[in-house]
Design a protein around this nucleic acid. Structure first.
Lengths: 194, 194
DNA sequence: CCCGTAGTGAACCGATCGGTCTACTATCTC
DNA sequence: GAGATAGTAGACCGATCGGTTCACTACGGG
């Protein structure tokens, strides 16, 4: 008597885990709660993911995948590296405005999963490294003596704004961060390639 | 057969809680572990703090008190508002370099304690508000048309740098953030009155 | 000297944790 | 139509959770 169409249990569990882990915290949410939210038997959860730790890793990987899609959309929508960078800040602002915003899922996960060897931390590192790499790649295409640490600085602004926005609520922090980024970035020359 | 001198149990519990909560996360650490680390009977923990939630609040309050002491030291050591602000970044760098650095305890607590009405979150809000207030007060004493949001921006830089430093390890993030702050701050005029 | 008190150590509570297992049932494929 | 497959409901496991209780003991102040 499956409550889901055949083959649906995996995605449903992942979706439920994403919602609950982000909303209530990874440590707080038990596997029973995830299974119940997914409308799926606990055993099905375990045949698909094997353990809670692996479910957490899958949850973060999925969120990283969606962020990568967002970055791809930004890349497609803007040719100028400067606009692309500012568009990332705009995406943060949009995301912050959504109901139930509770900061960066990756930062929260790293906060909760203290053990530095926890498998989930590698996903967090990967996500942040990729984002910083994207920002730095855009910086490199701008005019002037390329600052090799500006990408890192932009990531600091994004993470700081997201963190502050959890307590402050509202678009203020991210707009401040965007304004700072705007002053740090050299102007577009209009002759960037790729 | 007390293992502690009379009246010592409270402080010992608080010290142990501070160490364990910060190192392993609040959710991960049980009250039994805190009592064991403190070398104190579980019952003594409960006569002093009543519940784990209240122990968490006391833990954060204590850390906030120590940060306030640090701010007071900075205020005493530097007369110039500009130097005071940069000294806060320097304090972050020193703190980041210590063994077992795992980011801002308040940010981590807010990440873990998702319920927005959790009593600990008020302590987090208070801490961040006080720090931002201090930064803004220094900004207000600087020359030029005072930017009423610069204090908030400086806090974003601090939080972002601390967050990034957890994954990157090393003084890089905080130095970047300090350099940005340095460019954002108008120069000292030398005629500020305290 | 003696009483109040702070603290001990351990048992105990019900609830929940992550995880396993069994007996059963729809559904899809050949 | 038969067998493999994917899923169900729920009992069950040992461990741990936050919190309580109890009988007892060492120490400090009057």
């Amino acid at each position: 008597m499956p409550r889901t169409r055949r083959g649906d249990a995996g995605p449903r569990v992942l979706e439920a885990a994403s919602r609950l882990f982000y909303r209530d915290g990874i440590g707080t949410v038990g596997v029973d709660a995830v299974a119940a939210e997914a409308g799926v038997a606990k055993a099905a959860l375990y045949t698909h993911f094997g353990s809670k730790d692996r479910l957490v890793v899958a949850y973060l990987r999925e969120r990283d995948r969606r962020w990568q899609e967002e970055i791809d959309r930004i890349t497609a929508a803007h040719a100028s590296p400067r606009e692309r960078i500012l568009a990332v800040f705009d995406a943060y602002e949009t995301w912050q405005a959504r109901d139930g915003f509770r900061g960066c899922a990756f930062v929260n996960a790293a906060s909760e999963l203290a053990r530095p060897d926890h498998p989930a931390r590698e996903v967090v590192r990967h996500h942040k490294t990729a984002l910083r790499g994207y920002l730095q790649a855009q910086v490199d295409r701008l005019a002037g003596p390329g600052d090799p640490t500006l990408g890192a600085t932009l990531l600091i602004l994004l993470d700081g704004a997201a963190t502050t926005a959890v307590l402050d609520r509202g678009p203020g922090p991210i707009r401040h961060a965007r304004a700072v980024a705007d002053t740090l970035l050299p102007p577009d020359t209009g002759d960037e390639s790729s």
